[in-house]
Simulated assay, not measured.
Amino acid sequence: MRIVFLSARYPPDVLGGGEISTRLIAEALAAAGNEVSVLCGGQEYHDDIFGGVRILRMRELLPWWSKPIREVRVSRAMAQVVTKALEHHALAPDILHAHEFRSALTLSLLAHPHRVVTIRDYAPICGTTNNMWWDGSSCDGCSWTNVLFRCHRVVEASIPRKPFRVAQYKGNLAFRTRAYARIPHHVYTSAHLQHRVENRLHPPETIRASVIANPVDPAWVATPPTPLPAGNILCAAGRLETTKGTDVLLHALESVRIALPDVHLHCLGGGEVPRYQGLAARLGIADAVTFHGPISSVAVRERMDRSVAVLSPHLWEEPFGRAALESGARGRALIASDLGGVRETTTADTAFLVPPKDVPALAAACVRLLQDRNLAHTVGQAARR
């Protein structure tokens, strides 16, 4: 079977778990005997084979339009680029598969009978894609009142930028609703995400929906976990931003340090690094946290191996939560917010789930695992199984 993936980015150009999942799925399908190609953005044109997958990188598909005023106009332009690329390279796919919402909007405008979209976030129902209000609570709909006074991206914007944010997040939702309704097969990464999206999107009955969890890189489970380190070391993998709970994380570290003065946290990911370096300094914990910035998947795995536990105190309803799979693959206990798709990939035996935004609960869970290595080992091994 010939399968063409549409993706704004593709490894090694990675923003987060979405690009990693796209690569793993593409390579698995290729290994199963399918002819798999990926159309994605790139600074220069490249036509390469990697992992059994043909990767076509084109400057025209770079995600330069991440926040356009009118998504329909840009999507039409991208659809023309994709159509020409399919014809020029004689790809003739049996299936066209979009792996993030920008590509999904483009896919909706293509005339192909077998189109599939993987829905990884709340883009079909939320202009900001994270379905969250400014105070960290979950959004219940993009009414004008909610967009103007509760949407966190609008609230945080400067006064001159607010009208543009409103146009971006409110004005494009009608097009997104129509676009997703045109794609006949939806794949969700969790049942939680499917429930949230379909309750507001109300897709046509003709749409086929499936739930397929994100994969974990086989390299993460190929080698046995390393022994727990002697030091009180924690790590958190993901972008540094409010929605990921980085503020809560650093405040919890301040409390943990009272009980365990030698505790050290490693933050693995890009985002608002200078802002959180400043917060750590103000809390007096600058020497207890290392900000690594964006690092490779291999480096993340190695850092997890040197940690006692992995933290994911997200504020938004994380649609899936890759940290649960990756920490379990390395035999490490997970401490995460009891919110979103992480509930589907963990149990009481494989993770500590704490209320979101609850600094004392997060700190207490960290102290408990750091002080009881037998418990940390037991939870980590249960997660790996």
Rank of each mutant, 00 (worst) to 15 (best):
V248G: 00
D247A: 08
V263A: 15
D262R: 08
G284Y: 07
T290K: 04
L265M: 11
G270W: 12
D247H: 08
V308W: 02
L268S: 13
V263W: 06
G293M: 11
V263Y: 07
A259Y: 09
R257V: 12
P274H: 07
E254W: 10
S296V: 09
E318H: 01
L311Y: 03
V289E: 05
T246Q: 05
D262T: 11
R275E: 13
I258H: 14
S312V: 01
V300D: 03
H264K: 14
T242L: 12
F291P: 10
V310R: 00
G271N: 05
L265I: 08
A286K: 12
E254R: 15
L268D: 07
P261N: 08
L265H: 04
V300G: 10
S307Y: 02
I295N: 03
L253I: 11
G245K: 10
W316P: 03
G269H: 06
D247E: 15
S296Y: 11
L250G: 09
S255F: 06
V298P: 04
V298N: 05
G284H: 05
G321S: 02
R282D: 15
A324N: 02
I295D: 02
H266C: 04
R257M: 07
A324V: 00
S255T: 12
V310L: 08
A280S: 15
P319D: 00
T290Y: 11
L268I: 11
C267L: 15
S255E: 15
R301D: 01
A286F: 05
R301H: 01
G278Y: 09
E317K: 04
L315F: 06
D262L: 03
R257T: 13
L250W: 01
M304E: 14
A280G: 09
Y276F: 14
D247N: 10
L311G: 01
A252Q: 10
P274Y: 05
T246R: 00
S312F: 08
V263K: 08
T246A: 09
S307F: 01
L265G: 10
A252M: 09
P294A: 09
E254Y: 13
R303A: 14
I295K: 00
L268F: 12
A259I: 05
H251I: 04
S297G: 15
V300M: 05
L260C: 08
E254P: 05
E317Q: 15
P261T: 08
L249P: 13
E254H: 15
T246P: 09
A309L: 02
F320I: 00
M304W: 14
A309Y: 10
L283C: 02
H251M: 09
R301G: 15
H264P: 06
E317I: 05
E318R: 07
L279R: 01
W316A: 01
R282A: 14
G270K: 12
L268Q: 11
I285W: 08
V308Q: 01
R322N: 03
P319R: 03
Y276I: 04
